[in-house]
Write a protein that binds this DNA or RNA. Structure first.
Lengths: 109, 109
DNA sequence: AACGCTACCTTGCATTACCAGTTTCTAGGC
DNA sequence: GCCTAGAAACTGGTAATGCAAGGTAGCGTT
């Protein structure tokens, strides 16, 4: 039970939330997402991201289309679906509730 | 991939954080903790709490002593250790960082 | 002594993130 | 054409955690 492991565990499930937000703003592919997450200090590796994207696709929350690159292999550009938008709205609420709950517990005299 | 499951996943690792905060305020036993968490709208069941408390004990972050009840079997009253206080301080920082990261991602134009 | 309640604990399952690779595809040099 | 380098997507295997559904034991009441 060390701090780095706890950090990982705290982030569990929040990645899905972050990815949905990122793809809700426009078409991006995996490397773009990693860049954005890294900028926000949420380090993610490819091996984590790809299974997550496949889960989102399989659940109908996200979709993608192949777009050829000017240099290199084609890329999967992801976008959010209508179902994804609705789901994201509930996740926003869940996150708000969670923040309030933690606030309540951590600030109690 | 439904909302309730996501809710569960989002809370992963945060329970440990909450429990440490609760026992840092004084001696409590399991039912007290569940009451406090429920009041904060963090639903927890016994099967989740007891293994977590054993982990905290085994890691030296928390300790307990048996106290007899006026009505019923004796109870384990938990308190935080010095190591637990130090660990809790790092968790406070981790939580702050996490909130900032999510804030950064969810509010980006 | 039989029952119910309380408190503590255990087992099996599902989910998720990480690590360490592998495969596929394109571009460019020989 | 052939080979290498690099980018992009993907794939087991492992570890950690929460949940559901139980089980065990002590205490008081009837």
């Amino acid at each position: 039970m060390n701090a780095s492991n706890t950090q990982i565990q705290m982030r569990k499930g929040l990645l899905e939330f972050c990815i949905l937000h990122i793809i809700s703003r426009g078409e991006v592919y995996a490397s773009d997402m990693i860049d954005e997450l890294t900028e926000a200090q949420m380090i993610v590796v490819e091996g984590t991201l790809y299974p997550l994207l496949n889960r989102l696709k399989k659940s109908g929350l996200a979709t993608y289309k192949w777009i050829e690159s000017e240099s290199g292999p084609p890329r999967k550009y992801y976008t959010i679906t209508e179902d994804g938008k609705a789901f994201l709205a509930t996740l926003d609420q869940t996150w708000e509730s969670l923040v309030h709950s933690i606030q309540f517990i951590t600030t109690k005299h």
